[in-house]
Design a protein around this nucleic acid. Structure first.
Lengths: 335, 335
DNA sequence: GACAGTACATGAATCGTTTCAGGTGGGTTT
DNA sequence: AAACCCACCTGAAACGATTCATGTACTGTC
């Protein structure tokens, strides 16, 4: 039932070696053979058995991609970029979503190792250094996504989160805000700390006095944003901040939902909100959301390209690719 | 460098067959052997080579999932459900997103066939019947997702779109709307036609007279929703509908964006909007969006379970699993 | 016509697992 | 003590592709 290279060879009247050559280096085969083999392949509906190929040639045609939040449109965009690049190389993507759960992350890393992926793209959450090293020694290259690899041990593709945080807060200050809250978490995430650090830098370097407080969330979801918004509103009015810098758009949307619920339209007049990522939903929000744009597809494309290069050359030196963030101003910050 | 089952066998002082048995049927091996082999595996950091396993045993440990819109949170939820089920079986998901492009769809189907996935989950867009049949004859089971398989040739897991359409329009009529526009497309999609059919049925069976027009979009995206909204607003005011039923939440969000842009807050007073899918963004929208909820994770879980069952039993009969939709009322339809 | 060089084609060996027919040794039955 | 069972182990064959050393046939040169 399953048709193998041998069947093709027989039908085309050539040896298996020739069929393999037609498949892999058509240039080294006579035009006639190419023609006859192609014909036989069509007739028989032959498809290469990737397992056998992988086994013998050691060439894997899959790349793993593990993201930390599958609900976040930002990661969907990144994956989409990776996909484009991958399919142009005939490579398929093994996808895993950890939902910020270190044990799920571990499971996926093991699973993908067993699958012997060609390389791994990872938006890390937990402490995976040991595992990544083991992957490397098994010949699997890893590129970190959305996370600068400070020690330079692995390649990474990310946006300058510090600059992003600064952009956001500078914008808030310029538009007259003075009591700013950074809403985000968990702070195990490096990006999180960087965004906050950028925010702090902007606040400190401002010509005017600016208060910057931190409202911590346990994850970067809409629900957490809603909850944080409720906590803020529960304070006496004089203790409200006049601007919120959300660690990502999901949190920002949650905040927005709190602040406009029950017909209270506090944004942007009383409180400005700015998000991060500039996902497709930012523009469609209750109040169109200002945000810090990341070139998400480009991040995905680039990461995939790098991982393939590293897989091809195991001695390559890890490199950090950092894109600049971009401020996108919408109604939520401009009364 | 790479450690094989032979290395493990040697270190444990047993034969390769025994190691394999420890891995696959530990019950049939003496406790001592299990212990020694496990020890050796740990010492050596051995991981099974999935390619070899797949080649010899013909057992694949991946399932393909091809969705038609990776930006749509609905599909992300479905994938998440499938993921949960998959990882509990040690199965990895090969992910592909076609973005409503039939040629991409074809590419992924070929790619996944080459990978010899255990089964395939597919939210189809184009005409893939021929390809699916070929996959089947190659021993790869397919389960259609979010699409009822009318002819019963393949298994499917979906929500009753007709009922969903009816629910939506009945709700609009009950809340006093009489001039309803269905905004959606493309109509190559069966779900699309079903949702519209349900809407028509509700309009026709209503006790009062109801107008139902169709505003066609070329895809189910926010941008298309925005464009459709603009077209509607461009009409003389007396020709405006008083309610919009969007084929999914993304379109609904786009419509909303048009209708509240420039400070015009037409929703819900002048125009009601209801979406479909009840994605996480519906509640966070400009005006919290009424929608028709699909049990998305459950759809994913179920589809994966079924595809595994069918892979295990090639003679199983295709079955259609249909979940009921659920009306979720929010501000966008209740003045 | 001998020789080298070119252009292709061949098929056996190989990758790392799983499978399975056959083997071993000790215990139980008759 | 012969016959049989049982629990466990062994090792070679097989999966389907790729690789590579070895052929073969033809062209052109001197």
């Amino acid at each position: 039932m399953p048709v193998s290279i041998r069947d093709v060879a027989q039908r085309a009247g050539v040896s298996v070696g020739t069929v393999s050559n037609v498949l892999n280096r058509p240039g080294e085969v006579s035009a006639e053979s190419v023609q006859r083999v192609s014909q036989a392949i069509d007739d028989l509906g032959y498809v290469r058995n990737d397992a056998a190929r992988k086994l013998r040639a050691g060439i894997s045609t899959t790349v793993g991609f593990v993201v930390l939040d599958g609900q976040n449109p930002f990661y969907n965009d990144v994956v989409r970029g990776a996909e484009d690049e991958a399919s142009s190389h005939g490579i398929a993507i093994l996808y895993g979503n950890t939902d910020e759960d270190p044990s799920r992350e571990k499971v996926y890393l093991d699973l993908f190792r067993e699958q012997q992926v060609r390389g791994l793209l990872l938006a890390p959450f937990g402490d995976v250094l040991r595992q990544l090293r083991r992957l490397r020694s098994a010949g699997i290259a890893t590129v970190l996504v959305d996370r600068f690899s400070a020690d330079g041990e692995f390649s990474s593709v990310s946006v300058d989160s510090i600059a992003g945080g600064r952009l956001a807060v500078e914008h808030l200050i310029e538009t007259g805000r003075r009591r700013i809250a950074f809403v985000g978490g968990p702070f195990e995430l490096r990006q999180m700390n960087d965004r906050l650090a950028g925010a702090r830098a902007a606040a400190e370097n401002a010509a005017v006095h600016v208060d910057l407080e931190v409202v911590a969330t346990t994850s970067m979801t809409v629900e957490e944003g809603v909850a944080a918004g409720a906590r803020i509103l529960a304070r006496p009015r004089r203790d409200w901040p006049d601007a919120l810098f959300a660690a990502n758009d999901l949190i920002a949307l949650g905040l927005l939902q709190s602040l406009v619920s029950g017909g209270r339209m506090l944004v942007p007049d009383e409180i400005a909100i700015i998000g991060f990522d500039d996902t497709i939903f930012a523009a469609a929000a209750a109040v169109p959301l200002s945000s810090i744009r990341q070139p998400s597809r480009m991040i995905g494309r680039t990461a995939l390209r790098i991982v393939l290069e590293e897989a091809a050359d195991p001695d390559s030196i890890p490199r950090q690719t950092v894109f600049p963030p971009e401020l996108v101003v919408r109604r939520s910050t401009t009364g």
